[in-house]
């Protein structure tokens, strides 16, 4: 039983990171119909900003703030420079644009910084564990769960209470009519990118705290996981992205923990098979809406 609860906490912590990433991806998708494959590279930018900030002796808290700010600004800049010119183009064009942005960033990182990983030291208190009712919960895990919960609550308040938040939800449903409300389309899209950058930045800090280094290609795998989570939860649904993120983490952690040894090599295939089966049963995703599937 204890081990079950322990694994539950493990999944909750991993799911938080997935959820933040997936939510950022979904936010941009819901407004523009674009899966931004450069989303993961925003995490990489957070990493490099932290690396340089720590190198400049600014200390970890300031480095974290700068890292998140850097991802947020970069996301807004990415929209302005790369995606706005192709906003009215078809989906394939936007998708290819995002892949191009990602590739260019990889090459810039590899050639201007280093192809080798750069260390991001984390203080030792962050690496310990705290005892919660007999469970050993890692400090990073605890931070991850707390940060996810706070961010999701704040975001939910923003989306429900503020006009811009309501406009973003409206834009996800019907962009042209949202403009008929006098809402500035550029403001909505820029906000969506800014928030997606903020989410990627926070997820990046949590991810970096675990991995201890930043390298040019580190964003690729997380964006893939986030993409699976978004599809699993329901394309176009923000709540779906969060649910999809947690669902994917639970599937992964529980398979890794409880699959018999001989089955372990197939855990990734089993994960993806489960995702496919879920999508066959519910093509609109776990909580997506049928009419919203584009």
């Amino acid at each position: 039983m204890d081990i079950l609860i322990q694994q539950f906490v493990n999944a909750l912590s991993l799911g938080g990171t997935y959820a933040l990433l997936a939510l950022g991806l979904a936010m941009v998708f819901s407004v523009l119909g674009l899966i931004n494959f450069a989303h993961g590279d925003l995490m990489t930018l957070t990493g490099y900003a932290m690396f340089f900030a720590i190198g400049a002796g600014l200390g970890l808290p300031l480095a974290i703030v700068l890292g998140i700010a850097c991802a947020t600004l970069a996301a807004v800049a990415m929209e302005r420079v790369a995606f706005r010119p192709v906003r009215d183009a078809n989906t394939a064009t936007m998708l290819l644009t995002s892949l191009a942005v990602s590739t260019i960033l990889h090459m810039l990182f590899q050639n201007l910084i280093s192809a080798r990983p750069r260390a991001i030291p984390v203080p030792s208190w962050m690496i310990g564990a705290v005892d919660v009712g007999g469970l050993a919960i890692g400090v990073i895990q605890l931070m991850s769960i707390t940060a996810t919960a706070l961010l999701l609550i704040a975001l939910s308040v923003f989306l429900r209470r503020s006009i811009l938040g309501i406009a973003m939800r409206a834009a996800a449903l019907d962009f042209p009519v949202t403009r008929l409300m006098g809402i500035n389309a550029n403001a909505v899209v820029a906000t969506a990118f800014g928030l997606s950058g903020l989410l990627a930045g926070v997820a990046g800090v949590l991810w970096l705290a675990q991995r201890g280094s930043v390298d040019p290609l580190m964003g690729f795998l997380p964006v893939l996981k986030a993409f699976i989570a978004v599809v699993l939860g329901g394309l176009g649904s923000l709540a779906g992205a969060v649910v999809g993120g947690f669902a994917l983490a639970f599937i992964e952690v529980f398979l890794r923990a409880f699959l018999p040894d001989g089955w372990l090599p197939f855990r990734e295939s089993i994960t993806l098979t489960l995702v496919i089966v879920l999508l066959l049963v519910r093509p609109e995703g776990l909580i997506g809406r049928r009419e919203n599937v584009r």
Binding site: R160, I163, A170, V177, M181, G182, R289
Partner: peptide
């Protein structure tokens, strides 16, 4: 073309955004 997944209150609020 009302915003189906927004409440009546939210639909009106966004209508009055300007």
């Amino acid at each position: 073309r009302v915003f189906a997944n927004l409440t009546v209150r939210e639909n009106l609020a966004i209508g009055g955004a300007t």
